[in-house]
Each structure stands twice: as C-alpha cells, then as structure tokens.
Design a protein around this nucleic acid. Structure first.
Length: 300
DNA sequence: GACCAGGACGGCT
DNA sequence: AGCCGTCCTGGT
C-alpha cells in the first residue's frame, strides 16, 4: 500500500452535471465541513453540502462509499477538487498512527473518522480567520457572506440561489472601514482594511507563503494586523499547507488541560507543547481533537 | 439589562 | 517577556 494516492488510484465517473468518485476512504462531508476549517459550506435538506471554493459553486454528498460532486465535471475534478479535498493523502495511514498514539487521539479519530484538511485559498484564509477572532461560527459565516456579496463576483446560480466568489485583494481593497463594519465584521473592520491594503500596496504574493518553512510562514503571517498566534496557525494550516501547525483556541486549550496535563500552561507554551507532542502531523491531530471535544463539549 | 462566548492589540509593569 | 482591560455582535 502506497503512502501517497494518485489521481489514477480513483475511479471517477462523469454524469451530466457532475462526477461520482468511487470508493473514497476517510471522507465524510459532515466531518469535513463542520470541523471548523471552512465557513462557506452550507448543509442542504437532503444532507448534501453546497459551497463556494476556488471561484466555483459545487455540491458534495456521500453515497455509501462513493462521493458525489455535483455542478462540476471531470476536468475540474482533476484540476481543482482532487487537490482541494486532499485526495492525494492516505488518511488511513495517518489515522493508524494516531490510534496507536494514545486513547484520547483514538477516541477523537473514531469520532471524526471522515475529517480531511481542505487545501483552501491562502488569501481567503487570511481574511476569514481575521474575522474568526473572538467570534462565533454563525457570525463569521454571515460576515464572509456579506463580503462576498458586496465585493465578489456572481459566479452563477445553483438550486435557485445565487453564489458569489470570495473577492481577491484588489476587489476587496475598494471597501472602506465603514463598509466593512456594515458587513458585520465588528471591531475587526480595521484589521481587514489594513491587511488588504498592506497586501495590495506592497504587492505581497500569497503564493510566497506556500514556499516558506513553517516557522517563517507563521512569523510573516503575524505581521498582518489582526493576525495573532492562533489565527496565523489556522491560516498556515488551512491555507498554506503547514501541517505541523497547532492552533490553540478555547477548545484545544480545554483538551490540553483535560487530557494532556497542561492545566497551568500559557497559550504560547501550549502551542509549542502540541507541536512537540504531535510533530509533523500536529495539524491533523489538532483537527480530530478539536472536532471531538467541541461536538461533545468536553471540558466546558 | 446583565452576562456570556470568542482572540488580538496595546499599554502597563 | 508576561498580564490585563478593551474591542463588537448576538444569544441567554
């Protein structure tokens, strides 16, 4: 069994409006879209999820062992969605290691067995996670929606609803602080304004962050207004492929206190402790643990 | 109306 | 370097 999966390892059948990917392991839309890594995926009545990513609107559901992606085609699956859904990674192997690691991680993996880390757009993660600071998920989703409707492009209709792309830095740079406040971003309005301006005026290339090592990336991200240690870790993990990142939010703090003997530890120490404990795969461990304790409200 | 949830910042030591 | 008051919004 190989460690990395290739495009040809999957059987993909195209139908009129989408594709069916046969026999996909370790993939559950509920776990993926509800584990805190993304904000633009909405659950539909039929249990499927519709969302906007990479400037396209698609609908995703699990049908037994298969994954059905609607409103797309084989070409986009190969060029975009294979990577976006991290289908090149063997999560079974990863999970096997975690199950052996300890009882906590085993329970977390058993619970969130279908989690995958989406390979999302770095710029979108920067703005999204600035908005996430000291904020709750429904509010974050609403603010991002407002921003997309006002500054993004209409990319079409799906099931009778219009969808908008996430604005690029240039598109968002026309927004004033007051307009951003109107989008319900709260006190983060000035951070979004400043960071967008910073990126546009200094010609910062977001792709450069992908090339950096993890520590440099984290340090550079923290130079943006509104980006502290936790937000930088989320951007690095979800948007910059820095898989040893260990974002410590209130829930992860509770896990570390409850399960990992870190009762009196400060947040910076906890971050380093998590990275040392879980090593190169700290980001994956963080996701399983986060989803597990948040859903079960452990340590609250 | 008081209180709570949720991180970054800036001023203080 | 570390601690703490403040920031906005919506829900209880």
């Amino acid at each position: 069994m190989s460690e990395v999966k290739n495009l040809d390892d999957y059987v993909v059948n195209e139908y009129e409006t989408g594709v069916i990917v046969k026999d996909v392991k370790d993939f559950d839309p509920v776990h993926i879209f509800d584990c805190g890594q993304c904000f633009r995926w909405i659950g539909e009545e039929d249990g499927s999820y519709t969302g906007v990513a990479m400037g396209k609107v698609i609908n995703v559901k699990r049908d037994g062992k298969d994954i059905v992606i609607d409103n797309t085609n084989l070409k986009d699956f190969k060029n975009i969605w294979f990577e976006y859904f991290d289908l090149g990674r063997d999560y079974s192997l990863l999970k096997k290691e975690f199950v052996k690691f300890d009882e906590n991680l085993k329970n977390a993996v058993d619970f969130g067995w279908g989690i995958r880390l989406l390979q999302q757009d770095g710029w979108e993660m920067i703005i999204s996670f600035i908005i996430s600071s000291n904020n709750r998920i429904p509010m974050i989703q609403r603010a991002i929606n407002n921003i997309c409707q006002r500054y993004g492009k209409c990319i079409g209709e799906y099931r009778g609803k219009k969808y908008y792309s996430f604005p690029d830095p240039k598109e968002l740079s026309v927004a004033t602080v007051e307009e951003l406040r109107d989008c319900k971003t709260g006190f983060r309005d000035k951070y979004i304004y400043s960071t967008t301006k910073d990126i546009v005026e200094n010609n910062i290339n977001i792709n450069d962050f992908l090339e950096m090592d993890s520590e440099t990336c984290h340090k550079e991200l923290m130079k943006f207004k509104g980006v502290g240690a936790k937000v930088a870790d989320c951007i690095a993990l979800f948007g910059m492929r820095k898989y040893n990142s260990f974002p410590v939010d209130v829930w992860v703090k509770r896990v570390m206190q409850e399960f990992y003997n870190a009762k009196e530890m400060s947040l910076p120490k906890m971050r380093k402790y998590g990275m040392d404990l879980f090593g190169d795969d700290a980001g994956f461990a963080q996701q399983y643990l986060f989803y597990y304790v948040r859903e079960l409200e452990i340590g609250k």
